[in-house]
Simulated assay, not measured.
Amino acid sequence: MFADTDRADSDALACEQPHTGDRPVGPLISPVQVTDDELIVLLDDAGRPIGTAPKLASHHRDTPLHAAFSSYVFDRDGRFLLTRRALTKKTWPGVWTNSCCGHPAPAEEPVAAVRRRLRHELGLAVEIAEIVPLLPDFRYRAELDGIVENEICPVFGVRVDAEPVPNPDEVEEYRWVDWTRFTADALAGHAEVGLSPWSLLQLAELEKHPAVDALRLGPAQ
């Protein structure tokens, strides 16, 4: 289904694994307070916060371990929202990946960060109660063009009933895809687009995850 996988394959080998709201969506943070100069939360090897650092300046050949998140969005028909990162992004520009990624701000809970970034990147308004933990302990390290990602990155799922309105500073384009076919093709190396290394690692764990099935299929009838 989905070729052009050479870049994604090389990335995976390197792995050790427009609309902003106008009200606060998490502890001590509101959408308008977060910019490309935002702070990331630095972590020790056990995942405990040990400080903060500027996001852009911290991503380089020796990026410190820090807190992040990934999210997977599904619509009422069970389709998965695949997005392509903006060409202006410092890390993995133009690469197709999961629906939305980001970093919790200091003192911000991960679910609040998911909600904030979904609104900022995709114009999707969701409630915290609608954000479902999928892979709470996911962690990876990846490198591309001399830039390293080094994250403890819990993965969440979300179900929405709206069409995205992408922020062009964050998202180049998007597609709704059939989850079962997409994951099978991606994990077999037959995707039509090159995927981020973290999404490939996550897909291997999410392909048959029961909570994903619940999100896709909705409440039992």
Rank of each mutant, 00 (worst) to 15 (best):
D6M: 06
A86V: 09
L13S: 11
G102H: 02
R79T: 00
F138T: 01
L56Y: 06
A3V: 06
I128R: 11
R23K: 13
A186T: 04
K89A: 15
L217N: 08
G21V: 07
A46D: 15
A57E: 12
I131K: 00
I128F: 00
D4A: 09
K208F: 05
V193Y: 06
F80L: 15
H209A: 02
N98C: 11
R48N: 12
R216G: 01
A204E: 11
Y140S: 08
I147H: 12
L13A: 13
L87H: 14
G94D: 10
V114Q: 14
W176M: 07
E151R: 11
W176C: 10
P197W: 09
Q202K: 03
R159W: 02
P104Q: 05
H59M: 13
T52H: 15
T97I: 03
L28M: 06
I131Q: 01
K55T: 03
V32Y: 09
T52Y: 13
V165L: 07
E205K: 11
P164S: 07
C153V: 04
M1K: 02
L13W: 09
R216A: 00
G47W: 12
E172T: 04
H190D: 13
P166V: 01
R23V: 15
G194Q: 10
P166I: 01
P49L: 04
A14D: 14
Y174M: 02
P219Q: 01
K208H: 15
D6Y: 04
S58E: 09
I152W: 14
V193Q: 07
V212I: 10
N98D: 05
D11R: 13
D6H: 08
F74C: 05
P136D: 05
T20G: 09
K89P: 00
Q202A: 15
L201G: 12
V165E: 15
N167H: 11
P168R: 08
A8W: 07
A184V: 09
Y140G: 10
L87G: 15
V114F: 11
A86I: 08
K55M: 13
V126T: 06
P133Q: 05
W179L: 05
T5C: 05
L39H: 10
A46P: 00
D169W: 03
A105W: 01
W198R: 10
G157W: 02
L87T: 13
Q17Y: 06
D161W: 03
H120R: 11
L81C: 10
H103G: 01
A191V: 00
A191M: 01
D178S: 03
A125H: 06
